[in-house]
């Protein structure tokens, strides 16, 4: 199954442009945008893989500033689970905090607590206890279709367990690099990609599922795929993050976060499996 939803309206608009009915015109404009005081951004994850786990604290900046995001240094960052295991993270580099001892376990609820300049930020996340490993990672040649050019593509299969809601994220690394498409590609609209493959089993509950990944591959490429079992909160965060990073829809808003309105970002506890292969 193709994970990415076919973008119906984009396709229609594309068709309209093709017929000459729509004359779309794109223009960079300068807007007078409001500014706000910098806000806290937390990127924190814990998984079933051995640690250490890293928490990144940074802050927001004005839209027309450069993409430099100041680290938030000198924070007290504590991670603990429901069994009483507790870890105070140390700041390895400015804004990056690392665990020392805690070990992620499936099915446990984790809490992250941050104290910075008199403010406290707290979020909890439960690591899923339902998970299914990657069954296979296959690379095969595909004919040209409206979704993509002809070429080699990776496909991941797994057996979805029946009767439970499952949320997935996939991440693909090509030659050890997180794969992000070049957006200056001539067909950028068609192929824009951010390596954030999200899926649920809403329509595939209990099925043997295959996830088609869109990066085109070459012979000799080393491909690694990670399959994340995420909880619903993390799924909603990723889903709304994509909206905020992209077009934003009718009423653009900040992503749903388990920090509520205290901070941006999210604290995610997930189970992850990986597999890799070489294209031949």
């Amino acid at each position: 199954m193709e994970i990415r939803k076919p973008k119906i309206f984009q396709k229609i608009i594309l068709l309209l442009v093709a017929t000459g009915l729509l004359f779309s015109c794109e223009e960079v404009i300068e807007l007078d945008l409001d500014r706000v005081d910098p806000r806290m951004v937390v990127e924190a994850n814990i998984s079933n893989q051995p640690g250490p786990y890293t928490v990144r604290l940074s802050e927001t900046t004005d839209f027309y500033d450069e993409n430099n995001f100041n680290p938030r240094v000198g924070a007290e960052v504590i991670l603990y689970d429901e069994l009483g295991n507790r870890d105070t993270l140390w700041e390895v580099t400015p804004g990056h905090y690392q665990t020392t001892s805690i070990r992620g376990m499936v099915g446990l609820n984790y809490t992250l607590e941050i104290h910075h300049e008199g403010k406290t930020y707290t979020a909890s996340s439960k690591m899923p206890d339902q998970f299914n490993p990657i069954d296979s990672l296959i690379v095969a040649y595909e004919e040209e279709s409206i979704f993509r050019d002809a070429g080699y593509y990776a496909k991941v299969t797994t057996q979805d367990p029946e009767g439970v809601d499952n949320y997935y994220r996939l991440k693909i690394f090509v030659n050890d690099k997180v794969f992000i498409f070049n957006q200056d590609d001539a067909d950028a609209d068609e192929y824009e990609d951010n390596n954030m493959y999200l899926a649920t089993d809403q329509f595939t509950d209990g099925r043997y599922v295959d996830f088609d990944l869109s990066p085109p591959l070459k012979i000799g490429d080393k491909v690694k795929v990670e399959l994340y079992h995420i909880n619903q909160g993390t799924y909603d965060y990723y889903r709304t993050l994509l909206e905020a990073a992209g077009l934003g829809g009718l009423a653009p808003a900040n992503p749903i976060s388990n920090f509520g309105e205290q901070a941006l970002g999210n604290f995610n506890a997930y189970v992850v499996f990986a597999d890799s292969t070489v294209v031949q």
Binding site: L33, D34, V36, T60, T61, G248, P252, P255
Partner: peptide, 24 residues
């Protein structure tokens, strides 16, 4: 409409920061 009032980085992406509905 709602324009961004800033931006930040998360999951390796630049994300728009919003505040207030339809202020623009």
């Amino acid at each position: 409409v709602t324009y961004p009032v800033g931006k930040y980085e998360a999951e390796g992406q630049i994300v728009n920061l919003y505040s207030g509905r339809n202020n623009d």
